[in-house]
Design a protein around this nucleic acid. Structure first.
Length: 877
DNA sequence: ATACTGCATGAAGTC
DNA sequence: ACTTCATGCAGTATT
């Protein structure tokens, strides 16, 4: 892979300082001028833009590749002179036809021709020809490194460079951040004036960013100590976090620690805002969390070579421009984890960012939404929505290829990694877990680690267990947070880490602490997740089914729950079981007098009625169901607050949940034609924690719905079934009346064959009509989601809304009694169940047996995604 | 029927 | 007021 650019950035070593430096080389075959410290002479910034001109030859480097192999056409496309491939500069990163070569230069994948030899040979800096093999890379409009003053070393050892070059893979070149574009160049000239004395410091100065994490190899403490006081002061003053030395071993001995990539120009005005990812990475290895005011870790301590083992919240690596990484994306990673990621002692890990997986991230859709700032700061620039494949290695060394792309979104971009499902599954990650992105230097290889939200083992965070440490337990093959804790205790830095971490987490948590089952978003921070785990571990105790009810087992976050479609509580006084809303959390001791939920749903129904009849819904009737129910939910809450609800206050989350559930039901009832109960089969993405309209319902499927289930779906089905029964009752009556009338007529004209034939035809017609009606019902044309009021109108029983609401709240037997369809009940009893009753009638009418599936379809199960509900569950109480 | 794709939406967060 | 991002959903492709 390659990036557009006409310049080559060369990497060379000043072995005396073990510092990498970079420069730009004009790749015009006849030029080869390097920026070096002759920057102003060699590469004046073109006025009004970020393109630069090669002073000697006048070539612009904005979009061209100036080399023998690739010809920049006037159209802006590049042509491979060997194979004739045409590549648009903007597409070059995504079409794979060009790639950066390990040893520099540009290669055409199609023809395997490259420009490297010509290129490298021409590379000169300060008039010194750079030997072949020097890492030289075309840069994406990258400005020169801020490193200037020092010329390229004359002592570049090709053997030293070899591993560096070899380690560079095509995809690594993609790691050049988008931040290198445009803005990186804008302030080129100004920055140029910032001469840096020490090469190492040049890096730092060039990348000087007030908030950059910088894990510096311990071996470089000396160098840093030798830095000018001003430099140190400036950095430290501006750092929100303290210095820490972090080393993964052998960095100093291995020149490969030198970053193979150049950086964009540091912005002279705001250097911090023009970092390349690698600059950021460099800095990220040097700057660690600033000591909080309570002072914990100091830079001096750290500079002494103490290698922290604790999980460190690394401050945001600033992306380009104004985008600071939010604390939630700050990488929190221990040295051990870094080392684990690095795989070998010669590598250096640059933690980039992390992200807590959302439900959709971890879902089967396989798309991981990347924080924009992170994506733009650390991932390669992409100019087209299709993006480009990105190879990322996991902690086990397995390499995954994801599609890194973006979607236009509100005049912005939304970055996603596609195809992450196998990786996510491989890591057994779920919503709430954290994925970390780091970079291995040298090579710039991206690595992806992960951290479980909570241990899935049997550890119980009770009895003062370190929740934080536990929550931060990671799965880099490391033990849980206890390791961190003990280690931290040893080093005495834990408090600091925790403080810093806690600060970050506090900043992050804020309003997202409530991670209840129906929170709008599953923003589970590690600690939140732990809290959730605590809740879940205790949750089962709160589910109090009557002993006779058999649960279904649901696994959430590796916890097996006995799930009941309804919740029962046993009174501590009378020992009676009371049915309660499924979504309320009950205290350990509960009495009948505490049953304040019975009326809540009716209150909501009343509000729904008001909502509907006041015409509120009219305002939103064109809105999709989801929005409608949200509106209604809010309205209900508002109304309940204003009207001093009669129901006793409920626990915060559960009360809202109950309202939400009711609102969902209400919305479905209120959205005729535009709302539908999402079929489970069409909703593959729901996962534990999903709050979508389907997932907040009790789980569907076999074994999930009891006969007395009061879930939305079952209520709806039952309601439709009642309607169906009423209709059938009326039709039966009509039919009986018709038959009676026919019989009378028959008696009157018993001897007239003609009449008899007419009667027969009439019977046939009637039967056909009835069968047609039944068939209509059987073929799923009973809309389970129709408006209740409309349905109410359809009810021949003449029920109004209130009676309907009451009716749906009453046991069906009562309902049957009240509505004069006792015969149905009788028949039901005779048949054993309404289902069999119905089936029996259908059988008679259709004169053929109905399969279970047909029957279920006839009552609408299929319409709501209940594939295999048992008849028992369908049967009415 | 299911999976995939791309976009739209709006809650939450930030400036 | 604006941005970010989780996720719903419609259209399309695939099985």
């Amino acid at each position: 892979m390659t990036l557009k650019g006409d310049l080559i950035l060369i990497f060379y070593f000043d072995l005396s300082s073990l510092c990498w430096m970079g420069s730009k080389i004009c790749m015009n075959s006849s030029c080869g001028a390097a920026t070096s410290n002759e920057w102003k002479k060699g590469w004046p910034l073109r006025s009004g833009g970020f393109a630069h001109l090669c002073y000697p030859c006048g070539s612009a480097y904005e979009d061209g590749v100036y080399c023998d192999t690739f010809h920049l056409e006037e159209s802006g496309w590049r042509e491979c002179r060997i194979c004739g491939n045409h590549l648009h500069c903007g597409c070059i990163a995504s079409n794979y036809l060009l790639e950066l070569l390990d040893y520099g230069g540009v290669g055409c994948i199609s023809c395997a021709k490259s420009s490297r030899l010509h290129t490298v040979k021409r590379i000169q800096t300060h008039g010194d020809e750079i030997p072949e093999g020097v890492g030289a890379l075309p840069m994406n409009n990258a400005g020169s490194s801020a490193v200037e003053g020092k010329a390229v070393s004359d002592h570049v050892d090709e053997r030293t460079l070899a591993p560096l070059c070899k380690s560079m893979e095509a995809n690594e070149c993609n790691l050049l951040p988008q931040s290198q574009r445009g803005d990186a160049n804008a302030s080129l000239g100004q920055h140029r004036g910032e001469e840096v004395i020490c090469p190492t410091e040049k890096v730092g100065a060039g990348f000087s960013n007030a908030t950059q994490p910088y894990v510096r190899p311990a071996n470089f403490a000396k160098l840093d100590n030798a830095r000018p006081a001003l430099d140190v002061r400036d950095i430290q003053d501006s750092l929100p976090q303290p210095y820490l030395s972090m080393s993964l071993g052998g960095s100093s001995a291995n020149p490969n620690f030198l970053l193979p990539f150049s950086s964009g120009l540091a912005d002279g005005k705001e250097p911090s805002k023009t970092w390349s990812s690698f600059q950021q990475g460099q800095q990220s290895r040097r700057i660690l969390p600033k000591p909080s005011k309570n002072g914990l870790t100091t830079s001096s301590e750290l500079n002494k070579g103490m290698i922290p083992q604790a999980r460190i919240t690394r401050p945001p690596v600033e992306g380009r421009g104004k985008n600071h990484l939010l604390p939630r994306y700050w990488p929190r990673i221990t040295d051990q984890e870094l080392q684990k990621l690095s795989g070998d002692l010669k590598s250096t890990i640059v933690p980039l960012f992390e992200k807590v997986l959302s439900a959709s991230d971890a879902g089967r859709i396989g798309r991981l939404v990347l924080p924009k700032a992170c994506a733009e700061a650390y991932f390669p620039p992409i100019s087209q929505s299709e993006g480009l494949p990105l190879r990322i290695q996991d902690v086990n060394g397995k390499e995954w290829t994801f599609q890194f792309r973006f979607w236009p979104n509100n005049n912005s971009r939304m970055y996603v990694l596609e195809g992450v499902t196998p990786c996510i599954q491989s890591m057994q990650l779920r919503a709430g877990d954290t994925v970390t992105f780091s970079r291995i230097d040298p090579g710039g290889k991206l690595v992806m680690g992960f951290r479980k939200a909570a241990n899935s083992d049997t550890q119980t965070p009770k009895g003062g267990k370190d929740l934080l440490g536990n929550a931060l337990s990671e799965h880099f093959g490391l033990p849980d947070g206890n390791i961190s804790r003990s280690r931290d205790e040893d080093h005495g830095v834990r408090a600091n880490e925790n403080s810093v971490h806690q600060l970050a987490m506090n900043a992050e948590k804020k309003k997202t602490r409530n991670i209840g089952s129906k929170s709008k978003r599953l923003l589970m921070h590690s600690v939140d997740a732990l809290e959730l785990r605590l809740t879940w571990e205790e949750a089962q105790d709160l589910l109090r089914p009557p002993p006779s009810v058999r649960p279904s087992i649901v696994t959430i976050e590796d916890h097996e729950f006995e799930e009941y479609d309804e919740q029962w509580a046993q009174c501590d006084d009378c020992s009676k079981w009371r049915r309660l809303p499924v979504d309320v959390l009950l205290p350990s001791k509960w009495k009948c007098s505490d049953n304040v939920w019975d009326s809540s749903s009716l209150d909501v129904y009343a509000l729904l009625i008001e909502y509907v009849f006041l015409g509120v819904h009219v305002l939103h009737q064109r809105r999709p169901a989801q929005r409608n129910w949200r509106i209604f939910s809010k309205w209900v809450q508002k109304a309940k607050v204003q009207e001093s609800p009669k129901v006793a206050p409920e626990p915060e989350p559960t009360g809202l949940d109950a309202l939400a559930n009711a609102a969902v039901l209400g919305d479905k009832m209120g959205d005729v034609g535009e709302s539908s109960v999402g079929a489970t089969t069409k909703h593959p993405r729901h996962r534990p924690g999903c709050t979508c309209i389907v997932c907040i319902q009790p789980p569907s499927g076999k074994g999930k719905h009891k006969a007395n289930c009061t879930c939305n779906v079952c209520l709806t089905v039952k309601r439709r079934f009642k309607t169906l029964m009423l209709r059938k009752k009326k039709r039966q009556s009509e039919r009986e009346a018709e038959i009676s009338e026919r019989d009378n007529k028959k008696q009157m004209d018993e001897t007239e064959l003609k009449d008899t034939r007419n009667d027969h035809s009439e019977n046939e017609g009637s039967r056909s009509r009835i069968e047609g009606e039944v068939a209509e019902a059987s073929t799923g044309e009973i809309d389970l989601n129709c408006h209740p009021i409309r349905e109410d109108v359809q009810l021949e029983g003449g029920l109004n809304m209130m009676s309907f609401v009451e009716a749906t709240s009453l046991p069906v037997e009562n309902y049957i009694k009240q509505n004069g369809i006792e015969s149905l009940k009788t028949e039901q009893q005779q048949q054993g169940s309404l289902g069999s009753h119905f089936q029996s009638k259908v059988n008679r009418e259709n004169e053929r047996p109905l399969s279970d599936e047909e029957f279920l379809a006839s009552v609408g199960w299929e319409r709501v995604g209940h594939k295999e509900p048992s008849l028992e569950r369908n049967s009415l109480q």
